[in-house]
Design a protein around this nucleic acid. Structure first.
Lengths: 177, 177
DNA sequence: CGCCTTACGCTACGACCCGTAGCGTAACTG
DNA sequence: CAGTTACGCTACGGGTCGTAGCGTAAGGCG
């Protein structure tokens, strides 16, 4: 439940937590629920700093997220539940509620700040504004996860800078700059 | 090995393929290697059509990729090996070689076409151009995977259009509409 | 034709892990 | 002091991975 479970077995978790395996099953319905809760707690560590510009804020949260995914227990646990959720509709819904929708606060907060600074326009239609926020979230989280876990290459300050430029200014600017 | 293995057990795979379980172990070292090969074959179906504009090409490949991830066997197999790769360095390298680097051809092809059309500048430094291509790949693949498997919401034509606008023109344009 | 190599099918097995049942026990409550 | 609650512990059934051992059918070759 804290850090370091390299193997994701209930027996190891129980041993590491200093409790009996049956105690875990009394508190959680199964392995999936336990891991989702643990990952949700880890993700709650993320915070959006106010560094004065949208670009700096995005870069900072990207690096925070990458640092979170660098911890072995986070990447293993997150990918394990996502993999399992491809065959379990209820688990997918639980992930969406406990992790995805919960962390969208970061996108909404960043957009609000950028609008207050005049860096982003205030979108008139609230429904499409929500769609845009969802899109941003999938792009940021997806890119960092894919870079870290699929491409298996590091998310360093340089990558964060390039990614932020692409996100804010588009492909033309990223290719030119 | 073809389609439909909702459960990812070697016994089921063997039965479905009409062979004995031991035959699978004679051909592949283990479950991981088998699934990586199967996923690599599935991903080779992807093609980049030439629709006359970079935006149209990106939208098309995004929808193709989403259709691939809509198949239950693809999403289950892909996420299973990625999850396992968080604890297996050799498997991660195998994924990078067999899937990631192999599909970067799509990005390189799309960029070349866009440059021929004059939609994108030719980057003078080849090293940074490669970094940009890697970045684009992680953004596209990551966003589609995250949208489909983590957010668990559909990648439809409208989402593909919004995503492509964001990718090509940046956040300001996407927020404006 | 007879022999040998190769590949496959099949059964059985050990090892590991999940999740549950049953029982004993310590702590807390009134 | 009696009742409730929560926990520890052992044991177990079910399922899966990966392997060992043996039998057998197919194809090359003198």
């Amino acid at each position: 439940m804290e850090l370091g479970w390299s193997k994701l077995t209930m027996g190891d978790v129980a041993t590491r937590a200093g409790v009996a395996k049956t105690t875990l099953y009394r508190r959680w319905a199964g392995k999936n629920e336990l891991v989702v809760d643990a990952v949700a707690v880890l993700f709650d560590e993320l915070e959006l700093p106010d560094l004065g510009s949208l670009a700096a804020d995005v870069e900072a949260v990207v690096l925070q997220f990458a640092a979170l995914l660098d911890r072995p227990e986070t990447r293993t646990a997150l990918m394990a539940v996502v993999a399992e959720s491809t065959r379990d509709e209820a688990l997918r819904a639980r992930i969406r509620d406990s992790i995805v929708n919960r962390q969208k606060r970061l996108v909404l907060q960043g957009r609000r700040r950028a609008q207050e600074r005049g860096e982003l326009p205030v979108e008139p239609d609230e429904a499409t504004a929500d769609l845009t926020a969802d899109l941003i979230f999938d792009v940021i989280a997806g890119a960092v996860v894919h870079r870290t876990l699929v491409s298996a290459e590091p998310v360093d300050a340089d990558w964060a800078r390039r990614f932020t430029l692409l996100l804010l200014a588009g492909l033309g600017a990223a290719a030119a700059g």
